[in-house]
């Protein structure tokens, strides 16, 4: 190994794609050099973090399903029924009972789906945008970011009053868009979020695209624009890699679809 810090070789070692001779060579180098051992440990830690991210997404989704399933089951099992002692009922009787229950449940479910309008879906699903913890390390925190962190949303618009939309970068546009949503102003939020979206299309980039999808869907729901909201919710739910993949459940997607039809 000529270059003791050749990351490519170390990555291949961790991926198990070196031949036995190369593998042995790396292991010998590791014995001799603490720096190589440390670098390798850091890479392995990073790989585990990548897996952990996927675990997190799976666990979140499974927990959501589990709790949903439990709530649905609870509502059925909590009904106490009188005992029918000493009476033998025919199969036809039980089929009728089952059919009635099925009908009532279906009716209840459909009613539940219909009653969840955009406002309710917004209230249930809205989460504030959180700025990544490490952002301050590489980039200088700007005024908008400081105001956002302190929850001073009105002031964000005051200080940027004179600034043209074109002058903001994607991150600032995202902060202003989400701040507008925090102030219950979805129309204003759309101005900023749509700008990022159209810039991404024009530049073939994906700056904060996942966040834009989510918060635009929120803004559409708040405004009752179900067709546009549905398009984004379907996009997020069908892409497992989307950051907001698990934020909307299947039944919520159906609710939006039904609202669109009304």
């Amino acid at each position: 190994m000529e270059n003791k810090y050749d990351d490519r070789i170390l990555v291949n070692y961790l991926d198990g794609s070196l031949d036995p001779t190369e593998k042995q060579l790396v292991e010998q180098e590791m014995e001799k050099s603490d720096a190589i051992q440390e670098r390798l440990d850091l890479m392995q830690f990073t790989i585990r973090a990548i897996k952990f991210k996927a675990y997190k997404s799976s666990v979140k989704e499974i927990q959501h399903d589990f709790l949903q399933h439990r709530i649905e089951n609870k509502s059925f099992t909590s009904v106490s029924t009188p005992k029918l002692e000493g009476k033998v009922r025919s199969m036809q009787f039980w089929i009728k009972i089952a059919a009635s229950l099925l009908f009532l449940c279906s009716l209840g479910y459909v009613l539940w789906l219909f009653q969840a309008d955009g406002e309710q879906l917004y209230e249930t699903n809205f989460i504030s945008y959180e700025i990544a913890l490490d952002r301050g390390a590489g980039l200088q925190e700007n005024q908008l970011e400081s105001l956002y962190i302190n929850g001073e949303f009105y002031q964000m618009f005051q200080v940027s009053e004179e600034t043209n939309l074109e002058e903001f970068n994607s991150f600032e546009l995202l902060l202003l868009g989400t701040a507008a949503l925090e102030l219950n102003n979805p129309a204003e939020a759309m101005r900023y979020l749509q700008k990022i979206d159209s810039d991404n299309i024009q530049n073939q980039s994906d700056d904060y695209q996942d966040e834009v999808d989510f918060f635009m869907a929120m803004a559409y729901l708040k405004q009752g624009a179900y067709e546009q909201a549905l398009h984004l919710v379907t996009k997020m739910r069908s892409d497992e890699q989307h950051k907001y993949h698990s934020n909307f459940s299947w039944s919520e997607e159906i609710s939006i679809r039904l609202q669109q039809m009304l």
Partner: peptide, 25 residues
């Protein structure tokens, strides 16, 4: 530590995120 690395991972392009996810997970 994972949480912090995850926030850096989120800054990678979509293709990178997808590729690393498919290979390692």
């Amino acid at each position: 530590g994972y949480q912090l690395i995850m926030s850096l991972f989120d800054k990678l392009g979509k293709k990178c995120r997808q590729l690393l996810h498919l290979f390692y997970y």
